[in-house]
Amino acid sequence: MEIIHLSYPINKAAELGLNAGVSIAIGHFDGVHRGHQNVISEAVKQARIHGLQSAVMTFHPHPREVLGRGKHYYQCLTPLERKTELFRMLGVDIVFVMDFDQSLSAVPPDRFVNDILRGLGVSHASVGFDFTFGHRGAGTAELLAELGAPDIDVHIVEPLLVKQGFKVSSTYTREALENGDIATATDLLGRPYEVTGTVVHGDGRGRTIGFPTANLQLHHAYVAPRLGVYAVKVWMDGASYNGVLNHGMKPTFNKGEIVPVMEAHVFQFDKDIYGKSITVQFMAFIRPEQKFGSIDELIGQIRSDSKVAEEILATS
């Protein structure tokens, strides 16, 4: 899979070395959830039918970071490098990463189609039913089909519905995580929610009470799941380990204003992993964070949480 970074105005297809037509899925695709997967799979299918190169166009950074005037701090479900991995797994040949800046944000819908899509040699475009594009989001999926005719065939993918008629979306996924509803988030994504970070030194108290933890310094501003305790799978050096993770303020020890931290206790593991990059997958929510009256109460609860986590992970 090839990754091509673009900024507006773009180079033409021939200058980019694109020798065949392109079937493209367009969107930010944060989460690459099951609805996004349907949009991308449609582009891949059309590419195979018509002998085209399959592609995804995503935008970086998120438009909210550029247009929010400092009022929005964007938290992602999937950072760019993870998104590209997921695109590759879906059979995509090319990922176009469009630099979203003030220049691109001012492009009207007709110029987006003529300058960018036709410039890239697009002959098929796949988008979600709620897709918007162009200056102030003036373009809709229907307008894209109108502007693309007759040389760009546009397929509008209908929403994917789940339990109780809710549509799969990044917003729904975020809400599920913020509520600690890991089962729903996993169903929407089609895989466990995950974060990646570097193991850093903490206060060392976990080791003193018999439960050493890997304290995570996250690599990106991820959507933060509900504060509490989770059954997790920890990936490092290509291997998976079971564990329990606390996401919270460590209220038993800390006083005053502090920020949330993630610390994972990995079962049957005693290697020195400081400085290592690890990925944590959230498998189940066990309980909300709470404050304990003594260290003994805390130790007892950690033992109980670990037992629950082991039972959950034994069947996952």
Score class of each variant (00 low, 15 high):
279 T>W: 01
281 Q>E: 10
24 I>M: 13
316 S>I: 13
62 H>L: 02
262 M>H: 02
248 G>H: 13
296 D>Q: 08
139 G>E: 07
267 F>T: 02
181 D>E: 10
208 T>Q: 14
76 C>A: 08
87 F>Q: 01
246 N>L: 06
208 T>G: 07
284 A>Y: 08
287 R>M: 09
140 T>K: 13
233 K>C: 02
314 A>R: 13
89 M>W: 08
43 A>M: 04
91 G>I: 02
221 A>V: 02
162 V>I: 15
214 A>P: 14
294 S>Q: 12
246 N>W: 11
11 N>C: 06
255 K>R: 15
154 V>C: 14
52 L>W: 09
150 P>G: 05
193 Y>S: 13
8 Y>P: 00
287 R>E: 10
54 S>I: 04
225 P>W: 03
300 G>D: 14
85 E>W: 05
288 P>I: 04
253 F>C: 03
195 V>W: 03
250 K>Q: 15
7 S>M: 12
292 F>I: 04
195 V>D: 03
105 S>W: 09
235 W>T: 07
48 R>I: 00
171 T>V: 09
16 L>N: 08
306 S>W: 04
261 V>Q: 14
36 H>G: 06
192 P>N: 12
98 M>R: 02
62 H>T: 03
233 K>S: 11
251 P>G: 08
226 R>W: 08
186 T>P: 00
291 K>I: 04
61 P>I: 02
102 Q>S: 03
133 F>I: 13
207 R>M: 04
219 H>G: 11
176 A>Y: 04
315 T>N: 13
303 R>S: 14
51 G>K: 05
161 L>G: 05
1 M>T: 07
22 V>E: 04
200 V>S: 02
93 D>M: 07
118 R>H: 11
148 G>E: 07
170 S>R: 01
95 V>C: 10
107 V>Y: 12
133 F>C: 07
159 P>L: 08
277 S>D: 11
71 K>A: 03
190 G>M: 02
311 E>C: 09
23 S>Q: 06
80 L>T: 01
28 H>I: 15
68 G>E: 06
38 N>K: 15
87 F>W: 08
114 N>G: 09
182 I>N: 00
184 T>H: 00
226 R>E: 11
17 G>T: 08
202 G>C: 09
197 G>R: 05
227 L>F: 06
120 L>Q: 08
4 I>N: 01
253 F>I: 07
33 H>E: 12
280 V>R: 09
192 P>K: 09
